[in-house]
Amino acid sequence: MVEQKFPESLDKNPRGIPKAPFIANVEEYIGGPDGDVEGPLKDFQDAIAKYRYMDGSLTQRRKGLEDKIPDIRKTLQMVEFLKQRRDRKQKADDQEDDLEEDDENSEGAKKPLTTTFELNDTLFAEAQLDDTDTVYLWLGANVMLSYEIPEAITLLRSKLDAAETSLKTAIEDLEFVREQLTVMEVNTARMYNWDVKRRRERRSAEEAAKREKES
């Protein structure tokens, strides 16, 4: 059996996942009515196993990203909130310099921000946040870096964008892989049925020959 050119020579999707061929005519594919089916069937099984593996890892990837995106978004919301507060305070300060009077707005912005945050599961504590220009972002790998608030926002936005694009491609790939899996399964079924039919025809031909001999 010559090694089938499978799946290297075929079309690929943008991430290089090979496209499964659709076998419209089994006889043609295996090279004539007496072609071997075991080899191609084994190739199909291998391809299905590969697609299954990709399906598994992509599903995991998707889940990971779906967990990660809300986290980034929450962090971004919080930093944006801090920035808003800071901007308002700045404005209030300017106003104070100009007008030397305390209107209600500036007073609200000048009060330190009190938060109730989760210390541990079901355990909350109160904390007052001093006004600050910098926040610390956890970058992973046990590293935390301090950022100016606008920089932090830029970084978080780009991370969020990257994660969302990545999720989109993961879902695309996943849909692609599932499609290829179906095609390969259909191919397998077709070839299998074709082989069964061929065996039956051969057997009835044999029987007919035998009967002819007997008579």
């Binding site: 929450k74 919301q77 919080m78 909130f81 609200g108 921000l113 009190t114 938060t115 109730t116 989760e118």
Partner: peptide
């Protein structure tokens, strides 16, 4: 009012909370 943002609650004056 305590307004939840991310994992923690912010103590916000009511008008600010409405904006959020």
């Amino acid at each position: 009012v305590l307004y939840k943002l991310g994992e923690s609650f912010l103590h916000l004056p009511q008008p600010d909370a409405l904006v959020r």
